[in-house]
Design a protein around this nucleic acid. Structure first.
Length: 422
RNA sequence: GGAGGGGUGGCCGAGUGGUCGAUGGCGGCGGUCUUGAAAACCGCAGGGCGAAAGUCCCGUGGGUUCGAAUCCUACCCCCUCCGCCA
């Protein structure tokens, strides 16, 4: 959510941002209309309250003195009734303002390349060379099937399409990656947390998934809970409605969680294999920082995610998302894309974003500067470090051997208890 | 699931219809004193909106009333006991 005052005072910037993102600017017009009405009605209600408070106080005093208060009582009664009607309409306007404001996306940072869609994203750097095979490299699902470590058919029987049953070394690889990533992240000062995986509506709204993206979420009806699509949701909401001490910042968290996504509208995309699942594991990095530090922190966070790929020896590139491809809540995002020999292309394995104060405002996460009055919103950031399912894919495909076995990257061997999957 | 008890400012804890945004204590900040510290004493401090006047905020939403932290109601959360359960 953007700042109400900012939106009101900088309509040009908001419209420009909407246009850069290929959004319909009518959401902004709706907002303006509602906000105007709200403000007018708010003034009327406040004035009413002021007068009513004065009368009520007088009634209290006069009653104590035993004076006649019947005239004042009837005045107060009618004023009170008027206010109630005005309040009802004020609440409607407030609701509308909030609803329209919640639908306006974040303003892209000035360093974000302007572009229409993902084809205009900008490559920032590459690391590692795609492996050269003296045979035709296989897809991960073929490798996994030959090794007997992933069973898609039975997963489909148990749950349905877009689920996987990991077995033996496959299950172990999943667990090894989780531990490897958490250990590496905590060694860099991230605090490990294991949060709730079902969350309430307020948390989903706090990080921006709701109200706009409910089609992507799994929901439990009674009692109402949402399954998290990413650990970003519960971890960012750790500090919802809190005022943090300046000295406590920056706060770094890392969390392993399963993630659940409907993948509505992705029919026919990545239907085979582990790339796109309804349930997948991910280790996430989340930061709460002071506003002036957030862009440095984004660079550092991205490098922390890259470090995982480097240690696993997986070739990747870093992409700056252009304005047209930027997520709703993000001001700037780097995607990490790992090389997949089975597809002969780079695929997203991590997404690192600075949300500036967009989430903090929704979730009401503030901090107090030492010796200063008042509070400020923190900046929040997060990034995958990393998506585990896709890391499994990358390892299987990049480390596959001619004989059908898969070599385990050296850094992972202590966790895997093996040098190779046979 | 059954029975009971609670949610008040950073924390503890008063307040049961009328200057209560809220007594008091702890913690915090600034002084006095001290070589320094502690103790003692004095003083300052909640948040949102608004240019300001002002207005709103005592778990949340409704309601009663001229007026609600205080009364009614629904819901949420926490605690204790019983049952059940990993």
């Amino acid at each position: 959510m953007l700042d109400l005052r900012f939106v009101r005072e900088n309509p040009g910037k908001v419209v420009e941002a909407l246009e850069k993102r290929n959004y319909d600017i009518s959401v902004f017009d709706d907002f303006l209309k509602n906000e105007e009405n709200r403000k007018k009605m708010s003034e009327a209600v406040e004035n009413g309250h002021m007068r009513l408070n004065e009368i009520s106080e007088k009634i209290g005093v006069m009653r104590k003195q035993g004076q006649d208060i019947s005239l004042l009582l009837s005045d107060a009664k009618s004023l009170s009734d008027t206010i109630k009607v005005q309040e009802a309409s004020l609440n409607e306007y407030k609701e509308k303002v909030r609803n329209t404001l919640l639908l306006i996306p974040n303003i892209p940072h000035e360093t974000v390349p302007v572009g229409r869609d993902e084809t205009e994203n900008v490559e920032i750097r590459r690391w590692g060379d795609p492996p050269i095979f003296d045979f035709s490299p296989l897809n991960h699902w073929d490798i996994a099937e030959m090794l007997g470590i992933i069973d898609f058919e039975r997963a489909s029987k148990i749950a349905g399409a877009r689920f996987a049953l990991m077995k033996g070394a496959g299950a172990r690889l999943e667990r090894a990656l989780m531990n490897f990533m958490l250990d590496l992240n905590t060694s860099k000062g991230y605090t490990e947390v294991f949060p709730p995986i079902l969350v309430n509506r307020e948390s989903m709204t706090g990080t921006g998934q709701l109200p706009k993206f409910d089609a992507e979420l799994f929901r439990i009806a009674d009692p109402e809970f949402y399954l998290i699509p990413t650990a970003e949701v519960p971890v960012t909401n750790i500090h919802r409605d809190e005022i943090l001490e300046e000295a406590a910042l920056p706060l770094y968290y890392t969390a392993y969680t399963p993630c659940f996504r409907r993948e509505a509208g992705s029919y026919g995309k990545d239907t085979r294999g582990l790339i796109r699942q309804h349930q997948f594991n991910k280790v996430e990095l989340v930061k709460f920082v002071k506003p002036e530090d957030s862009y440095d922190e984004l660079e550092k966070l991205t490098m922390d995610a890259e470090d995982i790929l480097k240690r696993l020896g997986l070739p990747y590139r870093v992409i700056a998302l252009c304005t047209g491809d930027l997520g709703f809540s993000a001001a700037k995002t780097y995607d990490l894309e790992v090389w997949l020999p089975g597809q002969q292309r780079y695929r997203e394995i991590s997404s690192c974003s600075n949300f500036e104060d967009f989430q903090a405002r929704r979730a009401n996460i503030r901090f107090k500067r030492d010796g200063k009055k008042g509070t400020e919103l923190v900046h929040t950031l997060n990034g995958s470090g990393l998506a585990i399912g896709r890391t499994v894919v990358a390892i299987l495909e990049n480390y596959q051997q001619k004989d059908g076995t898969v070599v385990i990257p050296a850094a992972l061997r202590p966790y895997m208890g093996a040098e190779r999957i046979v």
